[in-house]
């Protein structure tokens, strides 16, 4: 933080002003003049919160993708299929047993096992051949997509959230003032807030594991120099297997989350593959904080775009990616290698 301020004083001040303005927009009731320009504050706050929760979902999907890429240089274009598969399996488990929470460990184990098979049988055979890996994973995603269409059909599924999560909750955010001066607080679906909190906890846990544990040390060393790590006696294939399984399992669990507050339909796999691509391109390949920032930016851009310029919301996402590519090709937090 200190070094960033020292290197870019002007940018830091601009960023600080932007963040302060944003906080002011969220925290205080709006004067009437601003409401005329931007519409009701409730709508704005809703869009911001949806953006943040969508960003949390994107983060869950993209963190596995970016870890796998950062460590193994594998581009797993079947990542979206793992997401959708996890969602479908989670739906079946939650429906059969009635326990929403039970779906998470089951999906994590099953999809993680599929990830193990993929890494052991497919990627290990073609290590270093990036193009071939990409093509093979494209083939796998086509096959998986059609098998899922075969089993679950074309209709959309929704994973039902349990009773203790459904319903709205009141947030301490003022949307407007009543005529008698009482503040009106924002209400928002509880399940989304819970998912947001869970994503933040998972993100912090991943950061802790990566930066404070022995396994994390191995992974970071592998990201920096794979060959050197292997030469110093670490059985790097086991690290690869663990990371790939973890990333796949995360994608599967994100599928349940996505199935709970959106829906599961064929085609969601490419949507989320694409979202994770854009997120990691913006955030920087192989960086967990980068994935978090990228996911937040893309989620916010998508939702705010949907509210204020519905036709061009997709273009916003794309424009952000193009600008990042043009000025910082390695991504916002990517290492300059």
């Amino acid at each position: 933080m200190q070094s960033f301020y020292k290197r870019h004083p002007v940018w830091s001040i601009i960023l600080l002003i932007l963040i302060a303005g944003f906080v002011w927009l969220i925290a205080t009731p709006w004067p009437p003049g601003l409401e005329q320009v931007l519409g009701r504050k409730r709508i704005f706050l809703n869009a911001v919160l949806s953006g943040i929760t969508l960003g949390a979902l994107y983060f869950l999907v993209a963190s596995g993708f970016t870890l796998i890429f950062g460590l193994m240089r594998n581009v797993n274009l079947a990542h979206g299929s793992l997401y959708l598969l996890g969602g479908y399996i989670g739906y079946e488990v939650a429906n059969a047993t009635g326990y929403w929470l039970l779906a998470f460990p089951v999906v994590f184990v099953l999809v993680g096992a599929l990830g193990l098979v993929l890494q052991h049988q497919v990627f290990r055979r073609m290590e270093g051949e990036e193009l071939r890996q990409t093509l093979v994973t494209i083939g796998i995603s086509v096959v998986l997509a059609d098998i899922m269409l075969w089993i679950w059909g074309g209709q959309s599924y929704q994973v039902l959230s349990p009773d203790w999560l459904s319903g709205p909750m009141t947030l301490p955010l003022v949307t407007a003032l009543r005529s008698n001066g009482d503040p009106v607080y924002l209400t928002y679906p509880q399940v989304r807030i819970v998912i947001l909190v869970a994503a933040i906890i998972i993100g912090i846990a991943m950061w802790l594991v990566l930066n404070r544990s022995r396994l994390g040390m191995l992974i970071r060393a592998g990201v920096d120099d794979r060959d050197m790590l292997a030469a110093s006696g670490v059985r790097i294939q086991y690290v690869f297997l663990a990371v790939f399984a973890f990333g796949a399992g995360m994608a599967g669990m994100a599928g349940i989350v996505g199935g709970t507050f959106q829906s599961l339909t064929p085609g969601e796999d490419t949507r989320f593959l694409l979202a994770s691509l854009v997120v990691v391109i913006v955030g920087g390949m192989g960086s967990i904080p980068g994935a978090a920032i990228g996911a937040l930016i893309i989620g916010l851009a998508e939702q705010l775009g949907l509210v204020y310029a519905p036709t061009y919301s997709v273009v916003f996402t794309f424009l952000i990616m193009a600008v990042v590519l043009a000025f910082r090709p390695q991504g916002l937090l990517g290492a300059g290698r």
Binding site: L135, V136, I138, G139, I140, V142, V143, D146, I147, W150
Partner: peptide
């Protein structure tokens, strides 16, 4: 599925 498997 056939096309995908063949490609694979």
């Amino acid at each position: 599925l056939v096309i995908g498997l063949g490609f694979l």
